[in-house]
Structure formats: structure tokens, C-alpha cells
Design a protein around this nucleic acid. Structure first.
Lengths: 393, 393
DNA sequence: TTGTATGCGTTATCAT
DNA sequence: ATGATAACGCATACAA
């Protein structure tokens, strides 16, 4: 990369300053010289030096995106959506934190070092005080430095007042509605395989669940509630193990909710292994409505979170392309998608019909496997461009 | 970010050069001054200026990863694996090209501009001459610039001789083995829903398929072969449409192969809609062995590609942490994973047993839905840490 | 072992 | 509208 601005200037018989002006385009330049410069750039195959430019201008075209793991569709979809909102001038730096607070802090520092133009932090926050303080401090630092920070799926409280925008997910509402759906179908003993205990997302979803139970007088005391709740990571394995544990504690369960679609799939596997029919013997529901959920057998009842839209909005906020409402907080609504994995419990089977509390959204709760056009209909409306494996290898 | 090297130097009562040496750590410094400098850094909360550092040193700690779409697990898994091989000093820049050659070139230029330390280009190459030339030129340019380039899942021929390493996928072999598996089960009329025609991956998988047919005298002439082959994107929708088209052309099909797991799932949906049993009436197989494949009903027979290992190796090559064999080419072997979606065709049902040509790998071809422990066994061995939705939202 | 001086390639501030 | 020139913050060859 020997060719520099000076080379181009020499070839176009102008000063380096003029070349710079032509390239950045934010300054009036005579059309004739402009053409000469562009020609020289083309002939010399000149490529601007990013670091030098960033140093002189004190800005960079890097946008950081923090995710737990891009291989997880929940985050992959958001990362992808952020990208698609990025112009072709900006570069997205995707960082896998693995859910570890330390790595998140490390990456934040790295991004600080790069003088990133913006940072989008996705996923739930860890609620331990030390971490919360450290994380908030880093965000404040970033903001003070001119980097725009947007929290995506994380409460605004995770950053110092006014230092970041937040696009929050309606986890509590979604959790409440999902459990209301089950209660309205007639379920009374509902197990819950929750996420790690110290995560905001886990807490909010669980709070919604409990609120729905309480509203129908099913909450019980803390002990009773605890008996029907187990914690674990947001993995399929956790769902599998959790379901077995719950079945052991309470054989009379008629429904089990997973903190996640992956967890729900694990629950399904465990139930099938026990010889239980879904939803004949036990109903199962998840959360997030990831693409593969509609494909499972039976198709999974879950809570849809418009991840792409949310991520796109977060990115627009990060780029300053969208105005933020007062307080800088946005709420993304969650919506129950009722599919084939939930139905009325055996005892109340007859006359269930279209139970109240059922959400719209192309869902269906046919007792058995949904085949054919019904399933496809759901699938298409749900997935948009994000079919699993939908790209070109 | 007012605090600079000079500030730290002043506080530690040393020169800026010494501070620089302490921070980069590649130069002897007295322990006492070293401690003083570190203390000053800490007290001032100093963060090095990345662009300035990159400019002065003519290197950067950015590593580019080009993918079609991170939301697609095929790419998400590779992007994630690349990340995990990255030390905490380097930053991965993930770029979604959407499979578009133009965007790929744009991103390559952007990375050139950033003076990226390395670039990993994943996915198949487009085989049109103009694009191939332009892409190869950019790669050559990158290499000349000191950026290490690694092709992952793309033939070495896509880059100028000696300018890049290549970790190639055994698409041809995998395609051949998969079709051999079907032939050995007794299938004679096998449909194929291929990817876009101008992609290397598409061509290689299809060539393997055809080679297997030819080896058993089933290839037929080009016309006959063409009748059983349709092209489309690597999406579920494509599989759905393609299967209907093939069924229309040749109702006597006993098996359909998808270019992809997502395509295969689409094929399954179409067949079910037609009232056909899988694998009772028609067998279905995919490619890649993505996590959700083991979860489908019936569990999908597919070709496993060790994406994580391949991506990790690519990254090590990019970082210069692993020696490359002569020629700079690595081949990643593909392996058939036989599951429940393939079985002997009806006419030959009896005595199928364990057909020859069946690959190992925890697979199974029970005629009906695999439930319980068998399914879980496959699942666990296949997925490792990459369960769908396996992270912490 | 440490300090000094220079250069990296742009952008931005003055002039003209 | 264009040119000269001074930052920008750090790394490194060279001195000491």
C-alpha cells in the first residue's frame, strides 16, 4: 500500500488538501479538478488509510455489536439486522462475550480504544452489583468519548442516566401473557425452566409468569412456586434436565414453560422420552419465536419478539438516524404465538375450542401435528428472510 | 479521551517512548519504572488510541470475517468459531455480504482501508469470470499489503497463487457419499434441489451426486439428469418449491436430496403437504448437519461438515499460529450422518436392515420417528456447544 | 535502560 | 476554490 494521498495529489497536480476534500466530499471543489483527482485515484488504485484518517479526524467508522454468541440465532438475527442498517461506509465489529461479564468489559475497552462510532450491547445484564457498576462505568466512559451506546434487550438502568439509549424487550409482559394463555386453557400446575438467576431477562420473564399465576390465585407461597421452578442456562440441555427434575418433583404437571425456545425443545425431548404426549399429556411453550420453533414437532407455542425490527431500530438510534423519545427508552412488545404444543389438559379437553387469551399471529392449536398449508403459513409469516440455513454456503 | 501517552509519561516521570515500550511489552524496561508507568496508566485510566497506534505501527488488530449472513447458522457457527480463536487483543469485524459479489468487493476494500491484520472469507465463490477476476485481484491486493487471507469453504483457485490459504470443504466427496447412501438403500430415482447454479459449492455437491449415480449406472444422459434437478437459493422456500416441481416432473421419485439442511426441511414440508410419508414414501436428505437438523421430525439424514473445527483452523492460519502444508490448502472431510429421514423405498422395504454404505456417527434409520434416548444421543454428539438458541438472551 | 527526534497519512486551520 | 502547514497520538531508529 505504497500509494498515499500525496501520490494522488502529485498525479492530479493539486495539493493533498484538495484530494482529501474531494474524497470526503463535504467541501466545494471545482468540477474540473474534482474529475482530475478522481481519475488519479482510479489510475493509482488508491485506497484511503483508515487509521490515519481516524486519527486526524478523531472519528472512526467502526460500530461495535456485543452479543453472547453469534452462533445462537437469537443473537445472530440481531447482529444481522444491525448490519443491514449499516451503510456501506461503516463496519460492524461483532464481539462474542459468551455471556461473561469480564469479556464484555474487555470488549468495551477494545471498542473504546478503537474510538468506535457507536456500540450496540445486546442481551441481558448480569445483576451482581460489582459487575453492574463496572459495566455502567465503561458505558459512561464510551459516551463521554462521543461513542453512542444503545442497549438492546437490556434495561436502561444498566447505563448511567442519559449516557445510552435503550431498546427494551417486553419480557415481563410476554411472560405474563404466555402463562395467561396456559391458564386460560385450563392448566393449573405449570412448571417453569428458567434461565440463570442473576440475569435481567430471566428475572423479568419469571416475574411475568408469576404475576399471571397470582392473578388467577395460582401463585401459592414462595415455597410452592419454587418447587415448580428450576434454573439453568438458556440451552436445550437445560430444558431437558429441568423437565426431568420438575416431573420428578411434581408428576401432576400439565404444562411446562421454557425460558427460551431452545430450552422448550429440550423439555419436549425429555417429555417424549418419558412417553408423554405433547400437548396431549403435557403442554410446552417457549420464548423468542426463533425460526426453528415453527419447524419443531409439534410446532412450538412461544412468545414472539420482533428481533430484527428491534435491532434495526437500535442501529438507527446508534447512527443518529432516528430520534429518540424522551428518556431514550423504547419498549418492544412481545406477542404470544399459539401453536400446536399447547392445548387444554386432558381433564378439560372437551369444549376447549378457541380459548380466551389466545393471541393473534397466524398461530393455531390443533391438538395434533399441524401439517401442510397451516404450518407453512405460520412459517412464512414468522421468518421473513431469516430462514435457518437460508443463505448461500 | 483527553488523556494521552504524554500525560501518562508526565505522571510517571518518564518519556513517552518508555510508556509505549511498557505497554507493548516487547522491549526490556526496568521493573521499577515499569511499575511506575503501570500505576500512572491505572490512575489516569488511560486507554491507548487504536488508530494512532495502527498508523504508527502500520498494523491493526482488526480481523475481517466475510459471511453471507450471520443469522444463517451455517455462517453464524463459523463466525463464532473464528471469534473464539481470536485472542482478546484482536477484534473480529464480521461483514454480511448477503451473497452479493459487489458487497463482498466493497467489504474487501473497507478492510483494505482499515489495514486489517487478516481476513477470512467464508462461503462459496461466484463463478462468473468478471467477478472471479475482481475478487482475486482484491485478495491479491490485500496479501500484497501484508494482510493474511484465508478462504474458508471456497476453493484456493479463487485467489491468486500463493496469496491466500484455503480451508476447503469436501463438498464433492460428501455429495457423492450421500447419494451412495441412498443408492445403497435401493433408491433409483432421486431428485435434487440444488443451490444457485453459479456457485462453487453448488457445483461441487452436484458433481458428487452425479458421480455417485454414474458409478451405479443411474446417471442417464444430461436431459434425464436435468429433469431430476432444479436450482434455487439455499433456502427453505426453495426446497419447498423445488420438491413440488420435481414431484410434478417425476411422480415416481423415491428420494429427494436438498443442497442444504434448510432446503431439505422445505422439501419435507412440501412432501407432507402432499400426504407423503417420510421416509415411508419418499426419503429426504440434506447437507451441513446444522443443529436444527437433528431436531426435525423425522431427524434429518445429512452430511456433516465440521464447521467449528474448520473455522478455528482457518483463524489460526490467519493469525499465523498454525503452519500450513505445502500449497496452503487444507481439506475438511465431510461425513454422512444417516438418521430417520432416509430408508429403503417401499418396494424393497423387507430385508433392508443395515444397508451397506451407511456412515457411522450415531445415526439411525429407524423407519419412524426416533424418540427418546436415541434422538438425544444423536443430538448431543452432534451439537456440542452450538445448540440453537443456546446462549443467554 | 532510557530519552530524543522523526515519521506514519490524514484532516483541519489558516492563508491566498 | 485551492495551497501550505500544523496538529493528531503513537512507534521506533538512533543516541546517550
Amino acid at each position: 500500500m505504497a500509494v498515499t494521498l500525496a501520490d494522488v495529489a502529485a498525479r492530479a497536480r493539486v495539493s493533498a488538501a484538495t484530494v482529501s476534500r474531494v474524497l470526503s466530499g463535504n467541501y466545494p471543489v471545482a468540477e474540473a479538478t474534482r474529475a482530475r483527482v478522481l481519475a488519479a485515484v482510479d489510475e493509482l488504485d488508491y485506497v484511503i488509510n483508515g487509521p490515519a484518517s481516524a486519527l486526524a479526524a478523531a472519528t472512526s467508522d467502526l460500530v461495535g455489536v456485543l452479543v453472547n454468541d453469534v452462533a445462537d440465532p437469537f443473537f445472530g438475527i440481531m447482529a444481522s439486522a444491525v448490519q443491514s442498517e449499516l451503510g456501506s461506509e461503516k463496519l460492524a465489529v461483532v464481539c462474542n462475550t459468551g455471556g461473561s461479564p469480564e469479556r464484555e468489559l474487555t470488549y468495551l475497552t477494545l471498542l473504546l480504544r478503537q474510538r468506535a462510532a457507536a456500540v450496540v450491547i445486546t442481551g441481558s445484564a448480569v445483576e451482581t452489583p460489582e459487575y453492574a457498576a463496572a459495566s455502567a462505568a465503561k458505558v459512561g466512559r464510551l459516551a463521554a468519548n462521543g461513542t453512542r451506546v444503545v442497549l438492546l434487550g437490556r434495561p436502561a438502568s444498566a447505563a448511567p442516566e442519559g449516557s445510552a439509549f435503550a431498546v427494551e424487550f417486553g419480557n415481563r409482559e410476554g411472560g405474563r401473557r404466555l402463562t395467561e394463555h396456559l391458564v386460560s386453557l385450563g392448566h393449573r400446575r405449570i412448571g417453569y425452566v428458567a434461565g440463570p438467576a442473576d440475569r435481567t431477562t430471566t428475572r423479568h420473564r419469571l416475574e411475568g409468569h408469576r404475576a399471571a399465576l397470582a392473578a388467577h390465585g395460582l401463585g401459592g407461597d414462595a415455597d410452592a412456586f419454587g418447587r415448580l421452578t428450576v434454573h439453568g442456562p438458556y440451552t436445550r440441555q437445560s430444558g431437558y434436565d429441568g423437565a426431568l427434575e420438575l416431573l420428578d418433583r411434581e408428576p401432576g404437571l400439565t404444562a411446562v414453560v421454557g425460558s427460551n425456545d431452545a430450552v422448550a425443545l429440550g423439555i419436549c425431548a425429555a417429555l417424549r422420552e418419558k412417553g408423554l404426549d405433547i400437548p396431549g399429556d403435557v403442554s410446552v411453550a417457549g420464548f423468542d419465536d426463533l425460526p426453528f420453533s415453527a419447524d419443531a414437532t409439534p410446532a412450538l407455542t412461544t412468545v414472539r419478539l420482533p428481533l430484527q425490527e428491534a435491532a434495526a431500530r437500535a442501529e438507527r438510534l446508534a447512527l443518529g438516524r432516528e430520534e429518540s423519545p424522551a428518556g431514550g427508552r423504547h419498549l418492544v412488545l412481545a406477542e404470544v404465538v399459539a401453536r400446536a404444543s399447547t392445548a387444554a389438559p386432558r381433564a378439560e379437553r372437551q369444549g376447549a375450542g378457541t380459548a380466551p387469551g389466545r393471541a393473534r399471529g397466524g398461530g393455531t392449536t390443533c391438538g395434533q401435528l399441524c401439517t401442510g398449508s397451516a404450518l407453512r403459513g405460520i412459517f412464512d409469516s414468522v421468518k421473513g428472510k431469516h430462514a435457518p440455513g437460508g443463505g448461500v454456503p
